[in-house]
């Protein structure tokens, strides 16, 4: 890089003009940093938009009352529109998030992707009553947007919260815990949402995340683990309440939910 060397006679150069010999170098740095900040801001904005749209999708999905069946047409088409918009928004920043920049802006995009994961895995659960796998989840994102296993995992933590709301609201409005039964090799087995939530909880608890402490994933895992456990326990308590007081329960009664998002559909 020319013009960046200074020698001992630097003091004499002052008379020639005040221009710093380092200017060309700093101009290059300025251009690079400007590009970096622009990319960063575009990504932050998209992350916010994706978060907002994903929350709306989740909200709409909470109006579903059945498990392992198609999403009602009206909700499905609304959500399809939102998903399309999100895909366009994400595809627009794909070039900002390629190669070395996948992790450079990870912290900026992470929030949006996690919320998005929560939405797609919830949608998948309602339709299939299974946990969407990582490759499946990754495939729902537009080309060029890479899914990290951290964001996938943190999204699943939040999914448990949605399952709790879904379970409790459904219990409150229909009087039974959502579930399904299927026939495999002539045996009919039933599986309800609480069993699924416990399975998720067990899987998470078995995960050794001690090594993540403090960095990246570790910042969130501990907190989310506690919230996730509480969610399962809330449903356990609600099921207990339903069994013990089930017959006395007036239609539309909702168990106490500190984080209740949805009002009961009807009451007398």
């Amino acid at each position: 890089m020319p013009g960046v060397k200074r020698s001992r006679d630097g003091a004499e150069k002052e008379s020639e003009g005040d221009a710093s010999p380092f200017m060309p170098m700093f101009e290059t740095f300025r251009d690079e940093l400007d590009q970096h900040h622009d990319r960063r801001e575009r990504i932050i904005k998209t992350s916010r938009d994706v978060t907002a749209a994903s929350k709306k999708i989740i909200f709409a999905l909470q109006r579903v009352r059945t498990l392992k069946s198609n999403i009602p047409a009206k909700i499905a088409s609304e959500n399809q529109q939102r998903a399309t918009t999100m895909h366009v928004q994400l595809a627009a920043i794909a070039t900002d998030l390629t190669g070395i920049n996948v992790w450079r802006y990870q912290r900026q995009i992470s929030g949006g992707i996690q919320e998005y994961m929560e939405a797609v895995t919830f949608d998948h659960y309602l339709k299939h009553q299974t946990l969407m796998t990582f490759p499946e989840a990754s495939a729902t994102l537009p080309d060029g947007i890479e899914l990290t296993s951290d964001d996938y995992m943190l999204g699943i933590f939040d999914l448990v919260g949605e399952l709790m709301r879904f379970a409790i609201t459904t219990m409150a409005t229909t009087g039974s815990l959502p579930g399904s039964s299927a026939e495999v090799n002539g045996d009919v087995t039933a599986r309800d949402i609480l069993m699924d939530m416990r399975e998720l909880r067990m899987s998470f608890q078995a995960l050794d995340t001690a090594s993540c402490g403090g960095t990246g994933l570790g910042r969130d895992v501990e907190k989310k683990m506690e919230v996730m456990k509480t969610c399962v326990e809330k449903v356990e308590a609600a099921v207990y309440g339903m069994i013990i007081r089930g017959r006395e329960r007036p239609k539309g009664w909702v168990p106490d939910l500190t984080d209740d998002r949805q009002a009961p559909l009807e009451s007398y």
């Binding site: 009553q129 299974t130 946990l131 796998t133 990582f134 296993s149 996938y152 995992m153 039964s181 299927a182 495999v184 087995t189 599986r191 069993m195 699924d196 399975e199 998720l200 899987s203 998470f204 078995a206 995960l207 050794d208 995340t209 090594s211 993540c212 994933l217």
Partner: peptide, 18 residues
């Protein structure tokens, strides 16, 4: 009946953490 969680999911998450 198949389970809710495919065990492979968490196996691979653990592998990535390790």
């Amino acid at each position: 009946m198949a389970n809710m969680v495919d065990p492979k999911i968490f196996e691979s998450l653990q592998a990535k953490i390790d």
